[in-house]
């Protein structure tokens, strides 16, 4: 059980680090003025400074307010449900790289419906298949939008 405040502080600190990184990179690129005007790093460098400032302000504010109660960021039960959708999405992205988007989407839809939704296997498989084919026809054939494809599509000559 983490509180909203704890997450708030962690995010602020992470963004502060990010601002420092970007600020450093822009400083290296050049933040001063030359004959043509400001150097490429000038504008983003000052933005990084403002971001850092806002993060410091946020962190200090939350630390000072730590005695006041804060909402729970996420309960264990909620987090489990978020993972139920996040992990399959992650797997889907990985599979897209190897199997192509359409096969991966068939597996995602069918698998998600059957496991997470506890819907009958045959319904899940049919829905997944219909959806994947429909997407293929819409994008690949009707609208000429090319998606990553894998071995299965190659079998059909695509």
């Amino acid at each position: 059980m983490t509180s909203n405040r704890a997450v708030d502080i962690v995010v602020s600190l992470a963004l502060l680090a990010f601002a420092a990184l970007l600020g450093y990179d822009n400083w290296r690129t050049g933040i001063s003025w030359d004959a043509t005007g400001p150097q490429p790093g000038y504008f983003p460098f000052y933005l990084a400074l403002i971001l850092a400032g806002a993060c410091v302000y946020g962190t200090v504010k939350e630390i000072l307010a730590r005695k006041e109660p804060s909402e729970t960021f996420v309960t264990r039960e909620q987090f489990a449900r978020v993972l139920q959708v996040f992990l399959p999405t992650l797997a889907f992205c990985l599979l897209t790289q190897w199997l192509g988007l359409y096969v991966a989407s068939f597996l995602l839809v069918a698998g998600f419906m059957a496991w997470v939704g506890r819907i009958a296997w045959w319904k899940s498989l049919v829905t997944g298949l219909v959806f994947a084919v429909l997407m293929f026809v819409t994008f690949e054939i009707a609208f000429d939008v090319i998606m990553p494809k894998g071995p299965v599509e190659a079998l059909f000559g695509h």
Partner: peptide, 17 residues
């Protein structure tokens, strides 16, 4: 449970395209 994965796929298609 049927809509969520379809939305995820649509998002991926959109992002890739």
């Amino acid at each position: 449970a049927a809509i969520a994965p379809m939305i995820v796929v649509s998002c991926a298609i959109g992002a890739y395209a």
